[in-house]
Nucleic acid binder design. Structure first.
Length: 569
RNA sequence: AGGGGCGUGGCCAAAUGGUAAGGCACCUGCUUUUGGUGCAGGGUAUUGUAGGUUCGAAUCCUACCGCCCCUGCCA
């Protein structure tokens, strides 16, 4: 894999974060024999988003940096939510990001037998019991944040009875919701997680990997720490909300006397104008606010892939964002910076007119066609050149002409001369309008044959260079311009009583069907990333794009000082 | 209110007692056949507040303020 200068520089600049500091101290102290084993533990119940990418980059990054390894483990303890489809999608996203877990692909369900044995051990030691309380009763017995809970009336069952009941639960003799296995810890603990937490619940449902073998399934809390332990994880990196669970994991691990991974919690990633919770993303999909999980407006990795974000840009972004314990929300502009930076170096340039205005070059011979040489990527000489056809009738961008331009506008206007990129200087001589609506329908211009290629022999300068396309040679295409999915930087914080979906941006997608692309651009394949000169970076849609009916998604616009000036007024 | 965390410029984030990095954003110039890229420069911080310890504090202590998480048989 080529590591770009950018990623190397970022690597150098980011001297430390607290997770790396801890690991380096551990290595220096000879802890775990200097080994570093991390893991990325997704639940296969949805698609990965950029928030996961932060965790992925951290876990795989740290493993690589310290010559360790990172496991991929699916936390599949709840058969009611998990599916193989998600397992495959997650693996695809991970590979796309560029990470390799080798043979270290695991499933929490691989440990179900071991977990059950451990549960029996805890029962035998009087550290766990079967409880018949209903949901409502359990809640009531749990107490509140400020009041201690009360012991369950089933708390003092004999070991024999507990063993028998647990076996019956496992054998399918107990209905769902009737009994659970709980750890006997402390109903008065100020940390609610320690108030006799549930270890096993009855779920008579087939599991995507273990089939119908089990009628009971371990809770995440009774599974996660032990899974890390079994795999010999040295540093178990997770998000802040699990800080409160650490004492419970410690309790299980100590009670079982097994390897103790060190859990380190960090703040999850938030980005302006988007949201990162699987629940909300699922709602966007289910309620058809977006087309699918991989809708280019989604912050999912599959959505970003479809939108045209390069994986390296996401990795560089995650590296730059850093790792800390303070909750934070990153500027959207920062993400876009990394996307542009990567794309600028790698995408071939083409001319495409997205909002056409017809231009007739009056003094250009009717049947003549010039083939003009254009540079494919000024940032990369190796990308070479291509030929672009020029003829009498062209399209230019509607925004590139103003009949009555303000001072700062230096594109085409009546009587003004500009350059058509790689072609000629042209001067606007006449504006033709629709008699009824007053809309400009066509421009008449003249060209200077001496300026072929874009330079005037007499040395005269021109203030603007514009992109264009020859009508006779252009292919029509669909262009989907995407904007922020939400109108608020924090979509969740809207007016009181208003659902967050009311903050969805009605202009998040603009579909343009009357677009024209130069011939070479029509050769591009689905998934390829290109630049439309002067407009932005685009990606041929990885599902709908065909040679006959091209479809391009806008990844991100180019920076545009003119647009910025207009916005400011 | 009980418990667990967190507060460094507009946004992230370094600095683990020695006198506030860096990036993004923003602003100025220069370069430019993308108003792109690149280059040069610039302004933003009494490090949440108030005290204290110290020759010296973002870093240690105390109090206060603010924000986040926790009462699923979800993860």
């Amino acid at each position: 894999m080529t590591s770009s200068n950018d990623s190397e520089n970022t690597e150098e600049r980011r001297v430390s974060n607290f997770v790396r500091n801890i690991i380096e101290e551990d290595i220096a102290a000879g802890k775990n024999e200097g080994q570093v084993i991390t893991r990325f533990p997704p639940e296969p119940n949805g698609y990965l988003h950029i928030g996961h990418a932060k965790s992925i980059c951290l876990n795989f990054g740290v493993a690589e940096r310290y010559k360790g390894q990172c496991h991929l483990r699916f936390d599949d303890t709840n058969p009611t939510k998990e599916e193989d489809e998600y397992v495959e999608a997650i693996k695809e996203d991970l590979r796309w990001l560029g990470f390799d877990w080798g043979e270290h692909e695991y499933y929490a369900s691989d440990y179900f037998d071991q977990l059950y044995d451990w549960a029996i051990k805890l029962v035998e030691e009087g550290k766990a019991y079967v409880c018949d309380l209903t949901f409502e009763e359990m809640k009531e017995y749990r107490g509140t944040l400020t009041e201690p809970g009360r012991n369950s009336p089933y708390r003092d069952r004999t070991v024999e009875e507990n063993l028998d009941l647990l076996a019956r639960m496992a054998a399918g003799e107990v209905d769902e919701g009737k009994m659970v296995l709980r750890a006997k810890i402390d109903m008065a603990a100020p940390n609610l997680n320690l108030r006799d937490p549930v270890m096993y619940r009855v779920l008579k449902m087939a599991h995507h990997r273990t089939g119908s073998k089990w009628n009971i399934y371990p809770m995440y809390d009774f599974c996660h720490g032990q899974s890390d332990s079994i795999e010999g994880i040295t540093h178990s990196v997770c998000t802040l909300e699990f800080e409160d669970h650490r004492p419970l994991y410690d309790w299980y691990i100590n009670a079982l006397g097994i390897h103790h991974p060190q859990q380190i919690e960090f703040a999850r990633l938030n980005i302006e104008y988007t949201m990162m919770s699987k629940r909300n993303l699922l709602e966007l999909v289910n309620e058809k606010h977006v087309d699918s999980w991989d809708d280019p407006r989604m912050p999912t990795l599959s959505g970003m892939r479809r939108r045209g974000y390069p994986p390296q840009a996401i990795r560089n972004f995650c590296e730059a964002v850093g790792v800390a314990k303070a909750n934070s929300t990153v500027d959207f502009a920062w993400l876009e910076h990394f996307v542009r930076n990567e794309l600028n170096k790698t995408s071939p340039r083409f001319m495409a007119v997205v909002n056409p205005l017809k231009v007739v070059i009056e003094n250009y011979p009717e049947d003549q066609v010039d083939e003009l040489e254009a540079v494919n990527n000024p940032e990369d000489p190796e990308a070479g050149t291509r030929m672009v056809p020029f003829s009498k009738v062209l399209y230019i961008e509607r925004d590139d002409f103003m009949e009555d331009p303000p001072k700062k506008f230096f594109r085409l206007a009546p009587g003004r001369e500009v350059r058509l990129r790689y072609a000629y200087f042209i001067t606007c001589t006449e504006v033709i309008k629709d008699a009824a609506t007053g809309e400009i329908t066509e421009l008449r211009c003249t060209y200077d044959p001496e300026t072929k290629g874009g330079n005037a022999p007499d040395g005269r300068k021109v203030k603007a260079t514009m992109h264009w396309v020859s009508v006779a040679h252009a292919q029509q295409a669909e262009v989907r311009n995407y904007n922020q999915l939400f109108t608020k930087a924090n979509p969740k914080r809207g007016k009181k009583g208003k659902h967050w979906t009311t903050n969805i941006n009605p202009e998040s997608r603009e579909v343009l069907t009357e677009c024209y692309i130069e011939p070479a651009l029509a050769e591009v394949k689905g998934g390829e990333r290109v630049q439309f000169e002067r407009l932005g970076y685009y990606c041929a849609d990885n599902q709908n794009h065909t040679r006959k009916a091209p479809v391009f998604n806008r990844t991100v616009t180019l920076k545009d000082v003119w647009a910025k000036m207009q916005k400011k007024g």
